[in-house]
Each structure stands twice: as structure tokens, then as C-alpha cells.
Design a protein around this nucleic acid. Structure first.
Lengths: 105, 105
DNA sequence: ACTACATTTGAACAATCGTTCAATTGTTGG
DNA sequence: CCAACAATTGAACGATTGTTCAAATGTAGT
């Protein structure tokens, strides 16, 4: 479990995954889809960003299999596709909430 | 727990943390320090990169409090400073090992 | 004080990235 | 077929990033 020995390919793959979560806008999109199904346009409205920007980010997240898409009529709905990323976000967000005491003294 | 509502600051902070894990070289450094204490020079040797490059990455990881440093004599030893990042790496690496069947058919 | 070793720093470069805008594709209803 | 809505695409831009090289700092032993 510990003392991990990753191949260069595995390391790059892992780094790529983190890279997709490293932009605030894109991270917000992922979090918005974390526990709910969301239409592309609704994500854009919710975050106050353009449909175009949303779509660019969604394409990256989709092709990395972090999100998956499902078209129903005119709308395209997005949900989490990666259990691993889902639980990583839960861990980090939980940590943010429990350790929200930035200035103790 | 779920349905997380993060402030823009929290989202950016989280994105920054992921950003520090998003470069293969830097991620390798973090993983090298994940369960062991490592001197800066040993990390460089282990990864086959220059001391300078190692130090640049270490500075970023240190100032984000992902790693902490401890100088003893000429050497500076680095260890994990963030439990949260530690467990996230464990989750992701575990996932990499259990799902290592890239081309089934 | 001088030398050797370990690490850090700063400037500079090419490469990558996020965003915007205009145009396009896909889908449904009249 | 045409209009209206939803989403995607591609080109272009400014900004950020990882890396290298040369120089500097810190530490220990003689």
C-alpha cells in the first residue's frame, strides 16, 4: 500500500488527473456535478460563466473520463464518471470543513 | 457531507493544492516523501533531476505546507506536512494498482 | 579563513493553459 | 423547411508554468 513505486506513465496519468482539478472554474464544474446530474447550460448559469467556457472545460473533463455525458433532447447532462475522483473530493472538502479554523489565536 | 457549497476562496485553495500535484516531476517528489523522510539531494538523485529543479519544486510544496523541511547539518530533510494530501495520494495510488487493467479485450 | 559539499535563488526561455469571441452543429416544435 | 434553443468548436490572445543555467547562501571540517 505505502512505499508506492509508480511507472512514469502512471505518474503522468495521476498528475493529469490532478491537473484537471487544478483550475478553480473547472473544479467548480466538477463539484457541481459531484452528487447531482447537471445540464451544461445549468452549470454555466450556476457558476455565472459562458456556455462556451463551460463546454471547453466539460470536454476536457469528459475526455479524461472524470465526467460522463448523456444527451436528452436539446440538453446534455453531466455526472461523475470516476469514483476515485469523487472520493478524493469528498476527502478534501470534508477536510476543508473540519479544519476551517485559520486563525486560532 | 455531500452537496458541498464552497466559497470562491475555498475553491481556489483546493484548486491550488491540486495544481501542486499536477506536474509529474513535482508529484514524484511528493510521492518520494510520502512515507519516508528524504534529503533534498537524495530526492534529486532518486528522480534523476538537478538539485536546482528539485529545490524549486520543494519551495512550492513547502510554502503550500504540503511538505515540511528540517535542516540537519548540511542536509535538508523533507516529509509530508498534510495528512489530507497524504490520504488523497493513498486513495489514488491504491486505485491505480487495483484498476491496472487498461486493455481488457 | 579556506575548501568542499548541500541547497537555494533569480533571471530567462519556450511551452502550456484559461478565456473570449464568432461561427457551427445538433435537436425540437411549428 | 425554418426558427429557436442548447451545446460545441476553432482561432487567437495574454498569462502562467516548468525547466535550465549561473551565481549565491548556508554548513561542517581542517
Amino acid at each position: 500500500m505505502s512505499q508506492a513505486k509508480l511507472t512514469p506513465d502512471q505518474t503522468s496519468e495521476l498528475a493529469d488527473t490532478f491537473g484537471l482539478l487544478s483550475d478553480p472554474t473547472r473544479l467548480s464544474i466538477v463539484i457541481a456535478c459531484k452528487d447531482d446530474e447537471r445540464a451544461a447550460g445549468d452549470i454555466a448559469d450556476h457558476l455565472g460563466i459562458s456556455p462556451s467556457l463551460t463546454s471547453h472545460h466539460l470536454r476536457l473533463l469528459r475526455s479524461a473520463r472524470i465526467l460522463k455525458s448523456d444527451r436528452r433532447g436539446k440538453q446534455v447532462f453531466y455526472t461523475m464518471a470516476d469514483d476515485c475522483v469523487h472520493s478524493v473530493l469528498d476527502v478534501m472538502i470534508e477536510h476543508l470543513f473540519t479544519h476551517s479554523h485559520p486563525d486560532p489565536v
